[in-house]
Amino acid sequence: MAKTNEELKQIATQVRRDILRMVCMAKSGHPGGSMSSTDVLTTLYFNEMNQNPVTWRRDGKGQDMFILSAGHMTPVYYSVLARAGYFPVSELATFRQMGTRLQGHPSIRKGLPGIFQASGSLGQGLSAAAGLALGKKLDKDDNFVYCLCGDGESEEGQIWEAGMFAVFHKLDNLIAMTDWNGKQIDGPVDQVAGEGDLAAKWEAWGWRTIVADGHDFEAIRKAFELAKAGKGSGIPTMILFKSEMGHGVDFMAGTHKWHGSVPKPEQLEDALKQLGETPLGDF
């Protein structure tokens, strides 16, 4: 059943709490981009995707599929999967520990339900997603394939190879998303690589291009609605979600410094206080 915006907001708050607690327990990980894409991924898994944790299988037959191209965003990915019922939320405590199914970057080798493909080496996931979308077309499977990329990641040339491929092969069942938070490890994206206007670039590449506020649930919903309406157009859709790295915690918001850094114990306490508790409860 579709969640209300209020319900989504509550889940997203809990996911942000999970993210911070996971990286602090692991003393490593990537909270910044996880927090900028939290609202989008929460909406995707709880409202948009035709997915079912119980009947999940890697070949994705009869369901929507999702590829996390920006593989370092595992904290948000694992939290959303756990909260959606793919595995026990208690398992989030094993993130990055020896023997865990919750590897630093997504792995298909540990038997974690919900993971369709390994990722982490950047720029490759959109190609895999295009392959999934083409596979669904060949199978006359009417479901969608979703893929989340980073804006820093989009400096990789392969992203644009995949962009050309998806248009050429008319993959209108492919909905790609970019977490457009404007930050990467070394600093603001426009000061690191001069990526420029991603919206103009994707449009020039021939994609249906949508720009939306990645922290406004109503805007996120509408963006997905518009994206899905592209089915039948023969054109893939890119949603560029304008977002803020570290969103939800004042001292983490809007700076690249939290891409791959972990809060100190007193900072965690402050951050959790800012987010507030939810009825869903911590893992």
């Binding site: 890697r58 070949d59 994705g60 037959k61 590829i67 369709f116 493909q117 720029g123 490759q124 996931g125 959109l126 190609s127 895999a128 997603a129 295009a130 392959g131 999934l132 979308a133 083409l134 596979g135 669904k136 060949l138 199978d139 499977d141 040339g157 392969q158 190879e161 995949a162 050309m164 491929f165 050429f168 092969h169």
Partner: peptide, 25 residues
């Protein structure tokens, strides 16, 4: 239908093939 031209873009070809394989091809 089962022949997929990828153009001169080998990196994407590898990823697309992996995606196709995941769907059972």
């Amino acid at each position: 239908e089962r022949f997929i031209q990828c153009g001169i873009a080998e990196a994407n070809m590898v990823g697309a093939a992996a995606g196709l394989a995941i769907t059972g091809k």
